[in-house]
Design a protein around this nucleic acid. Structure first.
Length: 216
DNA sequence: CGGCGCCCATGTAGTAAAAG
DNA sequence: CTTTTACTACATGGGCGCCG
């Protein structure tokens, strides 16, 4: 704990190592440096920037009179300044958003193979009838159309509703079969189709009632 | 462990807001 | 400025937390 690791984590050292504007980098040179760096990393790289950064072969980045070592130092200077722009306050704000809205966080991506939940009876009806109602009421907004269609759905004869819900039941079975397959193929990913990366119990009762209050 | 109740996911497309 | 994303209306099955 007593000794700090290399210059990456030690801004004060970095400032001493990199006196300001002592070098001869033009704007164009920096653009070129960044382009060479970009080219040097694999396109499918998924590791953290620190990991990748430590693996960069600076001799390959080197160009003109700028040696690999010079390039590396310049990059450290640039990236250090960049990190100053991202304040702790901003990071905390982003963390807050992620806590409250895990599914909407920037890096939240659904697995591409994750089966889609089947449409409920109402949504099937909605999907099927919407085009006709668009023609009937060309000037209606989507919100208004939704209202009309929900009215229509309520008026629908029981027989038709039954047909829609039977379709739903059938699709539900298929969905469950697909989910079984999905879980077999991706055992490391969750038991739950809904929120793959939300740990159980992450939503507290307080959070719920708070949201409820906000809604009203 | 059963049952209640909250909240999410699901379809659409225009629009508003945010990001790039 | 352009592109992307979230929200809006609606019904409803189902996952899950919580309480007794």
């Amino acid at each position: 704990m007593a000794e700090l690791p290399g210059p990456y984590n030690c801004p004060k050292d970095l400032e001493m190592v990199l006196p300001k504007s002592q070098d001869d980098w033009s704007k164009e040179d920096i653009v070129q440096l960044l382009e060479y760096m970009e080219k040097s990393i694999p396109s499918n790289e998924r590791r953290t920037f620190k990991t990748t950064q430590s693996m960069v072969d600076w001799e390959k980045v080197a160009f003109k009179d700028f040696s690999g070592e010079k390039c590396k130092l310049k990059w450290l200077e640039i990236s250090y300044n960049l990190r100053k722009f991202c304040t702790l306050k901003e990071i905390i704000q982003e963390a807050k958003e992620n806590v409250n809205n895990p599914s909407k966080s920037r890096n939240h991506k659904k697995h591409p193979d994750l089966p889609k939940r089947p449409l409920t009876a109402y949504l099937c009806f909605f999907k099927e009838m919407r085009p006709q109602y668009i023609q009937k009421h060309p000037k209606m907004s989507n919100q208004e159309l939704t209202k009309v269609l929900s009215e229509e759905y309520k008026k629908l004869p029981e027989q038709l509703k039954l047909k829609y819900s039977q379709d739903f039941q059938k699709e539900k079975q298929e969905f469950q079969e697909k989910m079984v397959l999905f879980r077999e193929q991706h055992p490391e990913l969750v038991q739950n189709s809904r929120k793959p990366d939300v740990p159980k119990g992450s939503r507290s009762k307080c959070q719920r009632s708070f949201r409820k209050m906000c809604k009203k």
